[in-house]
Design a protein around this nucleic acid. Structure first.
Lengths: 235, 235
DNA sequence: TTCTTGTTTTCGTCGTACCAAAAATGCGTA
DNA sequence: TACGCATTTTTGGTACGACGAAAACAAGAA
């Protein structure tokens, strides 16, 4: 009993063990990891191995390791999963068609979301949507605020199905596509047009018309994409 | 000019440099990474640092590192991104509602896919669906083959939009949800019912009826989920 | 040519050491 | 007593050297 897993590299064993402790809560969220010297004693291994393990845990998102600081345990949520792929995605976005591919999946997902919203949104959801829309309308003049409230409005759509994966997806989209967006020209006219697109989507949801909602949403995002192409050419 | 990036840990610099070389193709896909000794000389660092860098690249999916073998460069595609989160996802699936949350997103995505298929599938797509369906029908008696052809049928749906992200998503779903599925009882009756569900979806796509296609798809996956619950209870 | 057997390379791990930054400690003062 | 600052201790980041074992390679035999 209590046999240590001997599979693979020593560092991998340590990774598994520590990962288990994080899962089980033995290493609580937010708490610093024990010092490397303690770990090497606890596991009977060299510091080399400890450091390798820590590095792996770090890139898996199970701990947060700022240089020269004690790594902090971070119980992984759905966001951590998306964080972990950040570097790869950044690269993929750099190749031809990368941004387009990602944006197309976003269109697909949000199209599905507005359909769902039109069919199943409850009172509270409608109210949240309405508030987000109003905030967006009030920010037409201020492009920074508009950007935020725009995201927030879309974000409400991801909240409606009450599936914690979806808000994480939204955050991933906004994070990954932000570089493109932030380099777009800030035109109040566009803001107004986008606000009106949001209003149309809201209207369609209110009318419980999934087809109209999807059409409005696709129209909205297609236009946004067209603007990206205007600005950057093919990406 | 040509200034070395001094930001962060030495290992991180090496990671960035090697990642760039992989991106640029200077380190070609499939080619083994230079020996650690060469790298330490090339970068003017100790082997300790080289190993840390290699570890990080490995967990980012930029290289494939079997123990005791030279790491092999792997140009990251969309699959690599999903591989990189595998360990986190595995953990998330372990918590209550984890599988359900993931499966719900799958339902959402595939519902969107069949709608799209119903509206835009070309001749070739229809033919591919038809073939996949036939293969699935021929495998009703053999549960292993049925599982494969089942996946393949769903996979065709992910191919139709010609967005390389989508097949990667499908592979991710099948990989992550496989553990559940493989422990389900193999009943030919269920196979037959699932085949008929596939046939109904195909029929709806053929009729260019997105609503019917979505309904069939949701019905199909909801049933599958019900079976999972029957077998495992709440997950 | 293919298989077998050395030989050399390379990885995995250990241990020690040093520096600099962070954290803990203690002291003096308000 | 409580607070601010200087000092000591801890701890992470990196380097160097070493060794065993597995893998890659090369040479010779069948």
């Amino acid at each position: 009993m209590d046999k240590v897993d001997e599979t693979g590299r020593a560092a991998d064993r340590v990774v598994r063990s520590l990962a288990d402790q994080i899962r089980s809560g033995a290493l609580a969220d937010g708490q610093p990891l024990p010092p490397e010297r303690d770990l090497m004693e606890a596991f009977g291994i060299s510091r080399t191995v400890v450091r390798e393990a820590v590095r792996t845990l770090s890139s898996r998102g199970l701990i947060e390791a700022r240089p020269r600081h004690r790594p902090v345990v971070r119980k992984p949520g759905y966001d951590a999963a998306f964080d972990a792929v950040g570097s790869i995605v950044t690269h993929l976005l750099g190749e031809p068609g990368g941004v387009k591919n990602l944006f197309d999946t976003r269109i697909m997902v949000e199209a599905a979301l507005v359909r769902q919203a039109a069919q199943e949104a409850g009172r509270g959801d409608i109210a949240a949507l309405k508030d987000a829309l109003a905030a967006n309308g009030a920010a037409i003049a201020d492009s920074d605020a508009f950007y935020r409230t725009d995201n927030a409005f879309h974000g409400v759509l991801y909240d409606i199905p009450r599936n914690p994966v979806l808000p994480a997806i939204h955050r991933a989209y906004t994070t990954w596509l932000a570089p493109q967006w932030s380099r777009m020209p800030r035109l109040p006219d566009r803001n107004r047009a986008n606000y009106e697109a949001h209003a149309a989507i809201f209207e369609a949801i209110l009318m419980r018309d999934p087809d109209a909602a999807e059409t409005c949403l696709r129209d909205h995002l297609d236009r946004a994409w067209a603007q990206v192409r205007e600005t950057f050419g093919d990406v």
